[in-house]
Design a binder for these strands. Structure first.
Length: 468
RNA sequence: GCCGAGGUGACAGAGCGGCUAAUGUGACGGACUGCAGAUCCGUUUCCUGGGGGUUCGACUCCCUCCCUCGGCACCA
């Protein structure tokens, strides 16, 4: 089955064919590191992490690149406000980024280049654009001349230049030849950090870093370029203009953009005060709950972020988790054979999973296939008479498919020392129950609960889980 | 104004030119149980925004209208 992806450039589903055989060159716009990441970042990076995982699952060798914008007005502002060095600010929030994303199971990219590590290369790109007359110098600033690449405008946004200017908030700048031109290089104001350049002390504009660094690491043509929907215009169209003016080759073959998060049906924004950092959310919900919540909606759709929906995800996640842990804890025949029904159920889930993911990464469908598997597994355990082979096959399927979504990656709670101790205590408890000494049995259960271990009497024996 | 996404059951949210329209949550009944929890079995609800068209047949394709959300030079 062929993978189809929605390409923003064509507005249609296209069969995915990377340019370099089995290798996929993938670039996703990273954050400007002036603050903690919010749930919108989580949405985007979880989406592209999942896309990357699925491509690898399909057998592609993915080279994944994500930048950090570590020089920017907002970082400078933040540094002034807190009396810190801008480099210190960006380093701090880069660390925070890795910590937060790590908790959400977002794997690191192969490369995380930073703008400040690539100033010479950026200057070289800008100089080339000036040489090729796609850019002009104006009093220490360098601007890209949009009319020199006019046909790129609208390639992603599908809008005509005239139409855009009607509702636009473009700030006039008398140094620009045309108000739609954008800065490649900005002259440093007094007191601001900057780098020496042919045009004097300055720093890169926003868009140029992505063009320069992606080309540097991944070559002139990317297979996948991703980012939030808001970046379609102007950021990504500017990238195309710069890159194609510079290299003369197609910049990216497939453009993927994730949808936004709303909060209680309203746009999330700092001014509305409905802004949540990943940290705030993770203080209330386990990472796997948040990840399940995010992958339960297609990456291009808008997601509404509301407590009722997170609570629902928590319940749903518990159902998956219970099924998974139950497999790890069930008593069975010890026979390594896999039953026919089990093999069939796993194959059905995998087929549904792959068909969904092949259809522009329909993670919702993939999640449904995981629940199919959980339902089968629960029913099988309920009936009793499972074999070790059944359990191992089902656990393997959960790990295989769950792994693509970044779920169910730790072992079921079963075989470690804690598990042994819980089983020992439960034996004592069962003896007490057998002689109807409920005071003792409940005491064991209650004390375990105080320690964060919940024990339950299942039809197939003990079930337990660690619950904070 | 322009561009994009979408309108499916109590809620969230998939799919498909004709099959009982997924999956999760909720509600109800039953099983299991000392209690609790988990689990199982069953039930519950829309025939898919309004109108028109194509078709033997459309929720699914086309047109149109209405509505919602988002973007339009800071933004994932």
């Amino acid at each position: 089955m062929a993978l189809k992806v929605h390409n923003t450039a064509s507005g249609e589903l296209e069969e995915f064919r990377p340019a370099h055989g089995n290798r996929v060159h993938m670039y996703v716009c990273g954050p400007t590191v002036y603050d903690f990441c919010h749930i919108g970042h989580a949405r985007s990076y979880v989406a592209f992490d999942t896309i990357r995982r699925y491509l690898e699952y399909k057998g592609y060798a993915v080279i994944y690149l994500q930048n950090f914008t570590d020089v920017d007005d907002k970082i400078l502002k933040r540094a002034r406000e807190t009396g810190r060095d801008p480099r210190e600010v960006s380093r701090f929030f880069i660390d925070a980024y890795f910590e937060d994303m790590g908790r959400l199971g977002v794997r690191r990219a192969n490369f995380h280049p930073r703008v400040t590590d690539h100033i010479p290369e950026i200057i070289a790109t800008v100089r080339d654009l000036v040489d090729k007359k796609h850019a002009y110098v104006a009093d220490g600033d360098v601007f890209f001349c949009v009319t020199s690449m006019k046909d790129v405008v609208g390639r992603l946004s599908h809008q005509k230049l005239e139409d855009m200017l009607v509702g636009a908030r473009v700030e006039p700048d008398e140094k620009k030849c045309d108000p739609i031109d954008f800065a490649l290089w900005k002259r440093s104001k007094p007191g601001e950090p900057g780098w020496e350049s042919p045009w004097g002390q300055g720093r890169p504009g926003w868009h140029i870093e992505c063009s320069t660094m992606s080309t540097l690491y991944l070559g002139n043509t990317l297979d996948i370029h991703g980012g939030g929907m808001d970046l379609i215009f102007p950021h990504h169209e500017s990238e195309i203009m710069q890159s194609e003016a510079h290299t003369g080759e197609t910049f990216a073959r497939y453009w993927l953009h994730n949808g936004f998060i709303n909060v209680n049906k309203e746009k999330m924004s700092k001014s509305l005060g409905n802004f949540f950092t990943i940290r705030e959310v993770l203080a209330r919900y386990e990472p796997e709950v948040v990840r399940l919540f995010l992958v339960s909606t297609h990456y291009r759709s808008q997601i509404d972020f509301a407590d009722t929906l997170l609570d629902e995800a928590r319940t749903a996640r518990a159902r998956l988790r219970n099924a998974y842990d139950a497999l790890g804890q069930a008593r069975d025949s010890g026979d390594g054979a896999v039953g026919e029904e089990t093999a069939k159920a796993i194959e059905a889930s995998r087929t549904r999973f792959v068909a969904g993911m092949d259809d522009d990464f329909n993670t919702r469908e993939a999640v449904a296939s995981l629940f199919d598997l959980a339902n089968f597994s629960n029913a099988l355990l309920h009936k009793g008479g499972t074999s070790r082979g059944d359990r191992e096959a089902l656990l393997g399927a959960f790990r295989e498919l769950g792994g693509v979504l970044g779920l169910l990656q730790d072992r079921p709670q079963d075989a470690d020392i804690v598990g042994g101790l819980v089983r020992l205590l439960d034996e004592v408890r069962q003896e007490a129950r057998a002689r109807k000494d409920y005071a003792t049995s409940d005491k064991i259960r209650d004390r375990l609960r105080e320690l964060g271990v919940v024990v339950e009497d299942g039809a197939q024996g003990l079930r337990w889980k660690i619950q904070k």
